[in-house]
Design a protein around this nucleic acid. Structure first.
Lengths: 253, 253
DNA sequence: TCTCTTCGTTCCGTATTATAGAACGCTGTT
DNA sequence: AACAGCGTTCTATAATACGGAACGAAGAGA
């Protein structure tokens, strides 16, 4: 659980990857747009883009001339294969939960002390802007999905994690190490984690862990929405849904 | 339809991409393995791998220490979004066809004079080695899937395409421009293309095009298998299945 | 246990090359 | 007609990616 930033040995490659990563935010980009965003020289970016195009990682929109992700990325994504197969397995159950609860449902995995969101499902009515959170990171100590995973990590990791500064996002955020550890114990007892406006004011969320066949937490699912709708009497029902899903998902991976 | 190889402006980036592309063939690779495969210096490859790891495009297997594709690639693949959504739409219909016919079903798109395979479905019994063809390329003039697309391209492209040397793969391969053009006219009339051992001895295949809402060929689907099983009386049935599927898929994209 | 092999990793000098900056041509706009 | 914004090209130089050799660790085999 070391947080030391890994060393970049090839600077030109780092730049190129930065350029490529721009396309995760916006599907079509031009030379100038990227060079401004990254503060790089235009001709530099142009060289990088041209190379990516030659290697088919990028291709050009025949109409606008702008660059977009290409076949090479698609091929790579196929090669990812089953590394992130949880997503495929979990997706239908998540969609089902989203429809039933009319709330948002998220899937995340623990990665380097953080939660990385892999999948998001919205109730069927509004499919809009679904990609918002995908690929984004969040802290473990102040989100339902994060706490659900943190609670079931090996004890030494919990110990190390809670020993660092815990930044407050709202007045409900747990910032004390001892308090956090008690909370995690509670979560282990209950089987689920609640985030009552600890990360964002007005947003409540309930999360539960998924275990692999070795019994380690490999992911977590959460249902999230406006605190006003997450009344005390609704929680058992939400947990029941979550529990069903995570058990099935757990056995299927 | 020019075939000039696009110019690589940043050589170090090309190398890095070559390294990354290795992971499309084999999911887990070590430094030495890659350096031998590409004929590059070991320390060079090591620097590249380290950088990819720092940028999270690669991560390391905690047990073996080998490198594998990482979260960054996953994030990119999500950003691909609907660029290749045909795959998602087509997959269930393809699987259905594979199960019904007990043959292999492929989805491909036209790309720079070639067919690129995007999806492959095998009959449910044997899911083995399914990734074989994915991302691979093939010629348009000697495969069922390729001819199905070629036939419906704009006339000037057909003209240009047939004017070049057509390499023979088997004794059935069409190598004469005029003959090819006649064949394509037939395909347009029939609505489907046959490849009777034109690319590989003993393999027959039937392909049909998918059109987008502007009426352009954007993809094709083919059913492929041992020629011995593709008897004359079976073709109408196979075509019926194909036709149903491509029509539905076409309307859904 | 000791050797031998094989792997990933580190180091450093040099030759390669990625890069910045200015200039060009193009397109669409005011 | 002048302008603004875009992608592209060119070239010199400073920056750095790279090759080669050497190291430490881990595993195999005798």
């Amino acid at each position: 659980m070391k947080n030391e930033t890994k060393k970049v040995k090839v600077n030109s490659l780092k730049k190129a990857i930065d350029v490529l990563n721009c396309f995760t935010c916006k599907p079509k980009l031009g030379v100038t747009e990227i060079s401004m965003k990254l503060g790089l020289n235009k001709s530099n970016v142009h060289n990088i883009l041209t190379t990516f195009e030659a290697m088919e990682y990028l291709e050009r929109d025949t109409e606008t001339g702008k660059y977009q992700l290409g076949l090479g990325i698609f091929t790579l994504s196929r090669a990812l294969g089953d590394s992130f197969s949880i997503t495929k397995v979990a997706q239908p159950y998540m969609q089902e939960m989203a429809n039933q609860t009319k709330e948002r449902v998220y899937l995340g995995i623990p990665h380097e002390d953080e939660v990385v969101y892999l999948e998001a499902c919205y109730p069927a009515d509004k499919m809009s802007l679904m990609r918002s959170l995908l690929g984004e990171r969040a802290n473990m100590y102040c989100t339902g999905i994060g706490k659900a995973m943190l609670a079931f990590l090996p004890e030494e990791k919990i110990e190390e994690y809670s020993s660092r500064p815990l930044k407050a996002f709202t007045e409900n955020t747990i910032t004390d190490a001892e308090e956090l550890k008690k909370e995690l114990a509670n979560i282990r007892r209950n089987g689920y984690a609640m985030d009552k406006m600890e990360h964002e004011f007005g947003i409540t969320c309930i999360g539960a862990p998924i275990f692999d066949k070795e019994g380690n937490v490999c992911a977590a699912v959460s249902i999230s929405g406006p605190s006003l709708r997450f009344t005390a009497e609704r929680i058992p029902e939400l947990y029941r849904l979550l529990k069903e899903s995570i058990q099935i998902i757990g056995t299927r991976i």
